[in-house]
């Protein structure tokens, strides 16, 4: 039965890892509840959710570091955590510190030796942007540089499946752009990537599939557009001489905020709000109307679990 399942997975080339009906509890507390997820080649899956939503538990089960209570798990057609799976997997986990008295170059050489077909050393350096730091001891690295080293270690083995847990923490803008470019390149070469992040712009700019976890359940999955569409709010932005309080009572306005002379309204019905707005203050300038971003969607979904459950039920 299980052999059959893994054969099926191998025959459908693009699925790299799959979990079905996955359950896991810790001391009676449910961490993952009946979870289903497919991870495909050439795709970035972003797993989002608040702390304690089950992201780390899911990754640890896929890495074979935790045993699931029940459910089926297949990683590259192998049991999670098997040597063959590990030799095709890379993992960038959150680490407080690395052994301080080794140089970056040495760390990477060591990890390359763990894999049958390691990635070329220069290529690792280029992807991770570490060319100028090769001789640096890891105790002398900043938070962002340490993350770059951990990223380098995770791609050393030319992984078909790559786990990135909060990869850009502590990185400056330039390093983050470099990391994102590397992730896109790896994805385009066929790597399946599982990304967890608190930084929604990261998911927005990288992910092909977004999965939102809450209390161990997937409360929403889809791409960027699906997520945005799940929030019916529109963002109305304009410049006005009037104070923001004047706009709070317009019809369908859910929230008002102001930065400088610009005022932003979140509207549940843009048509109604706009009509009333133009009547109230015909002199406004720089008017724009846009859909909500992932951040708004995320907040909205995470707060209204009931509503979302209904939506996913309808969607399914």
């Amino acid at each position: 039965m299980q052999i059959q399942a893994s054969a099926d997975i191998q025959s459908s080339q693009h699925i790299v890892a799959q979990v079905s009906n996955l359950n896991k509890s810790f001391a009676g507390k449910v961490a993952l509840n009946n979870l289903n997820l497919s991870i495909e080649a050439n795709q970035v899956v972003a797993v989002l959710g608040a702390n304690g939503a089950g992201k780390t538990t899911l990754i640890n089960i896929l890495l074979g570091r935790l045993q699931a209570d029940d459910g089926e798990i297949s990683v590259l057609g192998q049991p999670a955590g098997s040597l063959i799976a590990k030799r095709q997997t890379g993992a960038m986990l959150q680490v407080a510190n690395l052994p301080e008295t080794l140089k970056i170059k040495e760390h990477i050489q060591l990890f390359q030796s763990y894999y049958p077909k390691p990635m070329d050393y220069q290529k690792v350096m280029d992807y991770a942007g570490l060319q100028d730091l090769q001789q640096r001891y890891s105790r002398k690295l900043s938070g962002g540089e340490k993350q770059r080293l951990l990223f380098a270690l995770s791609i050393c083995g030319n992984p078909k499946l790559l786990f990135l847990d909060e990869p850009s923490v502590g990185m400056d803008v330039e390093a983050r752009q470099g990391l994102w470019q590397a992730i896109r390149d790896l994805k385009n070469q066929g790597t399946a990537i599982v990304l967890t992040t608190h930084y929604l712009q990261e998911a927005e700019s990288l992910a092909d599939q977004i999965v939102l976890l809450k209390n161990g359940e997937i409360i929403k999955r889809g791409n960027n557009d699906d997520f945005r569409a799940s929030v019916s709010h529109k963002l109305i932005r304009f410049a006005s001489k009037l104070a923001s309080t004047h706009f709070a009572n317009l019809p369908a306005v859910a929230m008002v905020s102001q930065s400088g002379k610009y005022i932003s309204l979140q509207s549940t019905n843009a048509n109604q709000t706009l009509q009333a707005l133009l009547t109230l203050a015909p002199g406004i300038e720089d008017l724009t109307v846009q859909g909500a971003g992932l951040e708004e969607a995320f907040l909205h979904l995470n707060q209204n679990k009931q509503a979302v459950n209904l939506q996913t039920a309808v969607g399914a």
Partner: peptide, 9 residues
């Protein structure tokens, strides 16, 4: 750190 080593092959 040992977590990273354990996740590696």
């Amino acid at each position: 750190w040992l977590d990273i080593k354990e996740a590696s092959p």
